[in-house]
Simulated assay, not measured.
Amino acid sequence: MSSTPFPREVVDSHHHFIDTANTTFQSFLRSAAGCDITHLPEDYTRDVIDPLSKLGVRFNSSVHVEAMPDSGIQEVAWVEDMAAAGRCNYVRAYVASCDLTQDNVEEELQNLIQLSPSKLRGIRWILDCVGKYEGGTTATHVATSRHDGIDYLKSDRFKRGTALLEKHNLSFDLQCAPIQLVESAAALFSNYPTMKVCIDHMGKPRMVLGNDFLEDGATINPNVIPNEQELRIWRKGMKSMAALPNVYVKLSMMGYAIPGWIRTNERRAVLKSLVRETVAIFGANRCMVAWNWHVNGAVSDADNLSKVGPDAVELLNTFIWFFEGYSEADKERLFAGTAKEFYRLEESACQLHRNDSQQKRCNWMQ
């Protein structure tokens, strides 16, 4: 690992709070997990903020991203209440859940904006779909079982909802499978050039070196030759999206691409090449790091594809190693600047949302 100095500051552009046992709007999440899950602001502070701060890294702020709630409005209200109680003052932006195909989508977006005009920045609706959900054996995400494995990116109703995001100056966090980037995402989002889009989790190439362990369950998979078919699709999709100047990408959940990468130097090296290729495709000005923290390091890193993952400091050191040779300006963008720009972390509430009634209020206040 490199001895490169730690970054001056960090923005965590993607993490989740969860408390399935004590909330009324996380029943789907609890059902999907098969048990209760808890990760609250105090846990995040202990696991991420405090360890980074002890290194002298200034933790600037974070973005709370939806975690498949039954109600996006209730989830945002819950985090707002915790922030008001002083439990998570570092959360400076929300990416809320909203099904863009529902009949009352504009009303729901307006309600979300009204609930948190100073922090609501965008929407996410998980879209990874390559067919029906089959118990996690494919790249189809459990979230799409909420709507029978329909590929929303090909839905006219989803396209209508996407247009409303542009109207209200909201970004979209795009989580989908690489084949969807190729087949539909680039064509869809090219229609909305003023709306910012962020591809979550590096575009989600899946297990490009295979499983963490061999079939015996005890032997670490020694393969270090990537699945070129998977990477060809991923590269095509990422390059198609990078051609759109309004599209950005998060470097996160990298254990989905290479489960157990932390186990061997050889796997780390392959992952480093994928991360640097992503930065080469989009440029540092459109890439941002994220910890994706919830539950623990393994789940945050690999979405249950591996039982190991880095802690917050190990992940920071890994990013520093990935970015060896980059300019200081590029590293500042990757660790903080790009996230600040994309999520408009330094803008006021009056600058954020462009619907007419709110703009009139802002003009009056000015």
Rank of each mutant, 00 (worst) to 15 (best):
A243C: 14
F158I: 05
R267W: 08
R232W: 04
V182H: 04
L251W: 13
N169S: 07
P222G: 03
M241W: 00
C198Y: 04
D216F: 05
A257R: 10
L153G: 15
L251Q: 06
S184D: 12
H201T: 01
Y192N: 12
A187I: 02
K250V: 01
R157A: 11
A218V: 07
R206L: 13
F213R: 02
W261Q: 12
A187G: 06
P226E: 12
M241Q: 02
I179F: 01
H201G: 07
Q175M: 15
I262T: 15
C198R: 00
A243D: 15
F189N: 03
P205G: 06
P222W: 06
D173W: 03
K159N: 09
S240P: 04
V197K: 04
H168P: 06
Y192V: 03
E215F: 11
L174K: 03
D156V: 01
F213E: 10
P259H: 05
W234R: 00
I258T: 02
R263W: 08
H201S: 13
S155N: 15
G210Y: 01
L214E: 15
C198N: 09
A163P: 14
K196C: 06
S252F: 03
T264C: 12
Y152F: 15
T194N: 11
M253G: 14
N223W: 01
G217E: 12
S171C: 14
A163Q: 14
L174G: 06
S155R: 15
P178K: 02
E230M: 10
K204L: 13
E183N: 13
N191Y: 10
G217R: 13
M238P: 00
K196Q: 12
W234Q: 07
A243T: 01
P245L: 10
K154S: 15
N227F: 08
E228Y: 10
C176H: 15
E266A: 02
N221Q: 00
S252C: 07
S190L: 05
I199E: 09
F213P: 04
N223Y: 01
M254S: 09
W234M: 03
I258S: 02
E183G: 04
Y248D: 08
A218Y: 09
V182S: 08
L165F: 13
F172A: 04
N227H: 11
P226S: 14
A257V: 05
K239I: 02
V208F: 09
R235T: 05
G217H: 07
S155A: 12
L170Y: 12
Y248W: 07
F158Q: 12
L214Y: 07
W234G: 04
Y152I: 09
K167E: 10
H201K: 14
G255S: 06
N169G: 13
L188N: 06
